[in-house]
Amino acid sequence: HDVTIHAGDKTIHVHGASEEFLRIIEQAKRDGIHEEELLRLIEELVK
């Protein structure tokens, strides 16, 4: 999957995102996670 995530003034493109990655991001959004926290989460996941 190619994913584009908008968080605040940043746009992150993730190529080859796994289903698990997508679920984590969707869950985080539903939980109302702060955008900066979401960015950190994404950066950890894509290392």
Rank of each mutant, 00 (worst) to 15 (best):
I24W: 10
E35P: 15
H13S: 09
R23Y: 11
H13L: 13
L41F: 07
I12M: 07
L41K: 01
K29Q: 15
A7P: 03
G8T: 05
G32W: 01
K29L: 15
H1F: 15
G32V: 02
H6S: 13
H6E: 12
L45G: 01
I24Y: 07
G8R: 00
E37A: 13
K10T: 13
I25Q: 00
E37P: 02
A28E: 00
A28S: 05
D31V: 03
F21D: 05
A7E: 03
E36G: 08
A17G: 04
K10I: 15
G16E: 07
R30G: 04
I25R: 00
E26F: 04
A28Q: 01
L22Y: 09
R30E: 12
E35V: 14
E35Y: 14
I25K: 00
I5N: 02
G32R: 02
E37L: 08
G8P: 03
H15S: 12
I42K: 00
I33P: 01
I12D: 02
A17K: 01
H13D: 06
H1K: 13
G32Q: 06
I33C: 02
T4I: 15
I24T: 08
E43R: 07
H1E: 09
K29W: 12
H6V: 15
E36L: 13
H1C: 13
D2L: 14
I5D: 02
E43Y: 13
E44Q: 10
G32N: 08
I25L: 11
R30I: 11
E20T: 07
T4Q: 08
L41Y: 05
I5P: 02
V46T: 10
T4V: 15
D9C: 06
T11Y: 10
I5R: 00
H6M: 13
L45A: 05
A17I: 14
L39V: 13
H15N: 10
I25A: 01
I25M: 05
K29S: 10
Q27K: 12
E19P: 11
A28Y: 10
R23V: 08
D9H: 04
L45Q: 04
T4W: 07
D2R: 12
D9L: 04
Q27I: 07
V3M: 10
H1S: 12
T11S: 08
R23H: 11
L41A: 01
G16C: 04
E43W: 13
V46M: 15
D9S: 04
E43T: 08
L22K: 06
A17D: 03
V3W: 04
E35M: 13
E44R: 07
V3C: 10
H15Q: 13
A17L: 15
E19D: 14
I25V: 11
E26W: 09
G32E: 03
K10N: 09
F21A: 08
Q27F: 03
T11A: 07
R40C: 07
L22W: 12
E43V: 09
H6L: 13
V14Q: 02
E26H: 06
D9P: 01
E43P: 00
E43N: 08
A17N: 03
E44W: 13
I5Y: 05
Q27H: 05
A7W: 14
K29H: 11
E26K: 03
H34W: 09
R40K: 14
D2K: 13
E20V: 05
T4K: 03
V14Y: 06
D2V: 15
L41H: 01
Q27P: 00
E36K: 10
A7Y: 15
E35I: 14
D31K: 01
L38A: 00
E44V: 03
L22C: 14
H1P: 10
H13M: 12
I12S: 03
T4Y: 09
K47I: 14
R30K: 09
A17R: 01
E37K: 04
A17Y: 08
G8F: 08
R23E: 12
A17C: 09
I42S: 00
I5C: 04
V3A: 05
D31A: 11
I24Q: 10
E37I: 06
L41N: 00
A28D: 00
I12K: 01
E37S: 06
E20C: 02
L22V: 12
I5L: 09
K10A: 08
A28V: 04
E36W: 11
I25T: 01
L39C: 08
I5G: 04
I42D: 00
R23I: 10
S18E: 05
D9G: 11
G32P: 01
V3H: 07
V3G: 04
H6G: 06
R23A: 14
L39D: 02
A28M: 11
E44K: 07
V14T: 02
S18N: 10
D2N: 14
E26Q: 09
D2G: 13
E44I: 08
E26D: 10
I24C: 04
H6P: 05
V3T: 07
D31G: 06
T11P: 05
E37G: 08
L22F: 10
K29C: 13
G16T: 07
V14I: 15
L41D: 00
V3I: 15
E36Y: 10
I5W: 02
G8L: 06
K29D: 03
R30C: 01
V46L: 15
G8H: 07
H13W: 06
A17F: 14
R40Q: 11
I5K: 01
R23Q: 13
E26L: 09
I12W: 12
E36M: 11
H34M: 14
L45C: 03
V3F: 13
V46F: 13
T4H: 09
Q27G: 04
G8S: 05
R23M: 13
I42F: 13
E37V: 08
I33G: 01
R30S: 11
I5E: 03
R30T: 11
D2F: 15
F21P: 00
A28G: 02
L39H: 04
D2I: 15
F21Y: 03
E36H: 10
F21S: 04
L45D: 01
H1I: 15
E20R: 03
K10R: 10
T11R: 01
A28P: 00
E43I: 12
A28W: 14
L39M: 12
H6Q: 14
L38T: 01
V14S: 02
L45W: 15
Q27A: 12
L41T: 01
I24H: 04
E26P: 00
H34I: 12
S18Q: 05
G32T: 03
H13F: 11
L38I: 09
A7H: 10
V14G: 01
I33S: 02
A28I: 04
R23W: 13
K29N: 08
A7M: 14
L45T: 02
Q27C: 03
I5H: 04
V3N: 04
A17H: 04
R30N: 12
D2T: 15
L22I: 14
E19A: 10
F21E: 03
